[in-house]
Amino acid sequence: MKAVHGLSNKISVNENNLIKESYPYVNKYLDRINEIKVYEQLSNMKNDFIIIPYKWEFKNNKMISVTNFYQSAITLHDTDICVNKMKSIIKIISKIHNLELLDVKTFNPKEFSEFFIKNTKKCLFDLYFIKNKVDLIITNYWSDNSKPVFSHNDLVKGNFINFKKGWKVIDFEYGMYNHYLFDYASFVSESLNKKRWNVFLNLLNLSSSELNKINDLILFQNYLWIYWASYMFEQTNEQVFIDIAKEKFENLK
């Protein structure tokens, strides 16, 4: 794995172990108890498309997890995301959605977005022009009466690694039940250049109503992650969060 870094956790590598230690300001919006429930259940499932920690503990307001570290692995940061890779990722997302977990929470878009809005002194970009539309998306989030599916919810390039037998997904911090189109929207928003969005969306063979829904979820996520980046910038003063917010804002245009 060519680079090891984290935005939400302190990450270190000790021999063949990758150790993550959470920051307290991240614990305020991530449900670590829910995360542990996810790890406990995933660890008892046999599959070849996800990697989770083999050790974890939440103590003294700090989440510490230990995962096997694969030195030779690459992430999507290290390669072009061609159509074949997109097809592989679609299959992986579908497999994740078919996992059945018990007593795991369901994503609440209003509650989650309001945390960052209320706990950010000033958003890095003025989002007033899109606020009413986002509010409507949140209001109508479950209006299609779709059944929530277990979802990853944070499909950035760094959460896909490839070694030995193909692509796998890591980092289920945000894992919970969600709308079945959220993960696909997450991959579009988080991992694809805007010029490639339609290539990926065409591979999903969505109906017109589904296409409208996924575009709403893409917009919502760009809006959400701008506020997330603003919150994280105020906590850390790190330039990377300004860069993330700028990228997401460009996606809104």
Score class of each variant (00 low, 15 high):
120 T>F: 13
121 K>H: 09
121 K>P: 00
121 K>I: 12
121 K>Y: 11
121 K>A: 11
122 K>E: 09
124 L>R: 01
124 L>K: 00
125 F>Q: 05
125 F>G: 03
125 F>S: 01
126 D>V: 04
126 D>R: 13
127 L>C: 06
127 L>G: 11
127 L>P: 01
128 Y>W: 05
128 Y>N: 13
129 F>H: 14
129 F>A: 14
129 F>M: 10
131 K>S: 13
132 N>W: 08
133 K>F: 14
133 K>H: 09
133 K>M: 12
134 V>H: 00
134 V>P: 07
134 V>I: 15
134 V>A: 03
134 V>E: 01
135 D>Y: 05
135 D>N: 15
136 L>F: 14
136 L>D: 14
136 L>V: 07
136 L>I: 10
137 I>P: 02
137 I>H: 02
138 I>E: 04
138 I>W: 07
138 I>G: 02
139 T>C: 14
139 T>Q: 15
140 N>A: 00
140 N>P: 08
141 Y>T: 02
141 Y>M: 02
142 W>Y: 14
142 W>D: 13
143 S>M: 06
143 S>W: 00
144 D>N: 06
144 D>T: 02
144 D>A: 05
146 S>Q: 11
146 S>N: 12
147 K>G: 04
147 K>C: 06
147 K>M: 04
148 P>N: 13
149 V>C: 06
149 V>T: 12
149 V>Q: 05
149 V>P: 01
150 F>Y: 04
151 S>M: 08
151 S>Q: 04
151 S>E: 07
152 H>L: 03
153 N>A: 12
156 V>N: 02
156 V>R: 01
156 V>W: 04
156 V>Q: 04
157 K>I: 07
157 K>G: 08
158 G>C: 08
158 G>M: 05
158 G>D: 02
158 G>Y: 01
158 G>N: 02
159 N>W: 00
159 N>Y: 02
159 N>C: 10
159 N>S: 09
160 F>Q: 03
161 I>S: 13
161 I>F: 13
161 I>L: 15
161 I>R: 07
162 N>S: 11
163 F>I: 15
163 F>P: 09
163 F>E: 00
163 F>L: 11
164 K>E: 15
164 K>W: 11
164 K>Q: 13
165 K>Y: 11
165 K>A: 10
165 K>S: 15
165 K>L: 07
166 G>M: 08
